[in-house]
Design a protein around this nucleic acid. Structure first.
Lengths: 194, 194
DNA sequence: GCATACTTGAAACGATTGTTTCAAGTATGC
DNA sequence: GCATACTTGAAACAATCGTTTCAAGTATGC
């Protein structure tokens, strides 16, 4: 009978492929250099993944999983937003994570120009985080509208800071900015503005 | 004697090319489709611009100029940050400007993965805006460090919000978020945090 | 150990890439 | 109107792309 066709070898390959793409980027990705870098051949990559396009889908899925692992370590339901956000920034601003966010922003940029191809990426890239972040605000008494707006501010801020960090790597300046930003947000209360 | 070799025809071409790239993106740009779209030929594009790479440099320069024109209309030295930032958001969040920011974010993502090729883009993409934005804060009595941090917050916020807007086009939610954000920043004073 | 599948290498395919060659076309200066 | 330079079209170039073909290799089930 048939033995399992894929499984382990495929997973090992995918892991090394994600490393390569994280380092080299998505836009210029080509099968032959990729295959050589991961110790394989174009023929084998297509055998296991079907096509370049399907391979990219798997790479992005895997990269998304790596990104989500980062946040899984965060303390849920801490005493305050201040504490949670500081912890979150400490985690995502770790230089070891730069590659994954570089890939994230590259994918994001490509997705905005080719919405059909990256439809899955785009549909979750904001919405998933809003859902995730508005919940604590709702518990704190914010209206649904303001809870989503507050979540929007947080998503925008983190992404803006990370974009800056990937660009300049000027941790001191950006850390200070994040501190000011958190402090400012802390002044907001569930009553909202006039 | 020689008549001027380039000048007008070249400028007309470049203008149409920028329109095309703004609509179709940079990553998949190819000379033959581009030439057809702007009513020209690959031969002519290379004649006027030398190479695809030089053409892209000019496109990005021109796109950057278009982006800067947007901010030139803003009221300088208004009564308060609140007013200035609201006006700035109104300008950049105009749906007519989406294309230019889509191209901006695509370029940004590509630049992060190919720093050498986009060195000029990267060197200005944060620094120019910090220089521009920290000045008013310095006049308001902020320390140099905090003025730069505050400018960092503003750059990050605007970019995060614009990224969201390009993705979801959910103006109502994001407008509300910008309002909350401006209000929060307004609570900060030149004394800084503890 | 035979048969059956899974796995892989080598090579070629057709398409597309940026760019070059070469020649014809076109407008200008005198 | 001749000469000169700028401009352009058609075609070919070499390189690279994702993918396919075909055959040999390898491990497994019985």
């Amino acid at each position: 009978m048939a033995r399992l066709p894929d499984a382990r070898r495929r997973a090992e390959l995918l892991d090394r492929i994600v490393d390569y793409v994280t380092a080299k980027g998505l836009a210029e990705l080509s099968l032959r250099p990729l295959a050589e870098a991961v110790g394989s051949s174009p023929r084998v990559l297509l055998y296991y993944f079907g096509s370049k396009e399907e391979l990219i889908v798997e790479v992005l899925t895997q990269a998304g999983a790596r990104q989500r692992e980062l946040f899984a370590k965060l303390p849920r339901d801490a005493e305050s937003y201040r504490v949670t956000m500081r912890a979150a920034w400490a985690v995502v601003s770790d230089p070891k994570q730069e590659g994954i966010f570089r890939l994230f922003f590259e994918t994001y940029g490509l997705a905005l120009q080719d919405r059909k191809r990256f439809a899955r990426f785009l549909s979750g890239v904001v919405e998933n985080w809003l859902d995730y972040l508005e919940k604590p605000a709702l518990r704190d008494g914010y209206s649904r509208r303001d809870a989503r707006a507050l979540a929007t501010v947080m998503v925008a801020g983190f992404r803006g800071f990370l974009l800056d960090l990937c660009t300049t790597r000027d941790r001191k300046r950006i850390d200070r900015a994040v501190e000011l930003w958190i402090e400012a947000l802390d002044s907001l209360g569930p009553s909202g503005s006039p």
